[in-house]
Amino acid sequence: MYILQVIINGIMLGSVYALLGLGMSLILGIVKLTNLAHGELIILGAYCSVFLTSRLGINPFATLLITVPLMFIFGYLLQRLLINHAMKRGAEAALLVTFGVSVILKDGMLLLFTADARHISSELGSSSVNAAGMDISLLSIILSIISVGAIILLMVFLNRTYTGRAIRAAADDPRAAELSGINVAKTFSAAMGIAGAAAGIAGFCVSMKWTFYPDSGGHYLLIAFVVAVLGGLGDIRGTLAAGFIFGLIQVIGGANYGMLISYIFLIIMLVTNPKIAHAADDLSAR
């Protein structure tokens, strides 16, 4: 029974981790950019939800209807007005620009929202479902349904819609996509918008599940990166699987050792993965 409990907890935690990594993976796979501001986007989404709940008294789940479009617009504009231009200066310039954005967002949120710990508390946190002799938190169940739902929605979008296909075409070969009439700059911006929206939902989960601070972004960026690399860059289904594995490691390893294990795990992944060495060559060739 204990093992089953561990597995269920791991998978529920893992689905949120997968959502944390979703936007990161999309940008790594499609725009071929390491977005070092992804953690701050997640925290920005978390603050949106907290602000709307505590100041305007909106139901926490309903805040998603406002947070997600806002985060989409923020991501879109970020890419359109800033990162697209930086990418013309090379991969390294773009990386450093996202680094700058992360620093600005982090300290900006510190000024706006102070260094206090934030959290959305709801009655769901204390209620649990009893099944097969196990107590499973209702909140965790709902958050994993939201996470997995968002991931499936994105998968359908990328496979079934015109914009989704355009995004994938631009990822495979930007020049050929441009020739067949796809506006790559706009497509990349849309991809960043989606990544922002995904970060918004992830931020909502963070605010419901954990307490966070303005400088928590680095922590979530690293989780997102582990999941994205483990899942295979840009591979949505892989991201989900990677989230589950990573969640299990955390549940088994505990808070401190879990993090250390995942850092080491990530380095091993980076060292041994030939796809990554190859991707790096592609980048320097561009």
Binding site: I267, L270, L283
Partner: peptide, 21 residues
């Protein structure tokens, strides 16, 4: 020994993760 053959932006991330670890 571990990190130098990782190229491009993955080197950046790997060095950062090593420091975090």
């Amino acid at each position: 020994v571990l990190l130098l053959h990782i190229g491009g932006m993955y080197f950046s991330i790997a060095t950062w993760v090593a420091a975090e670890a």
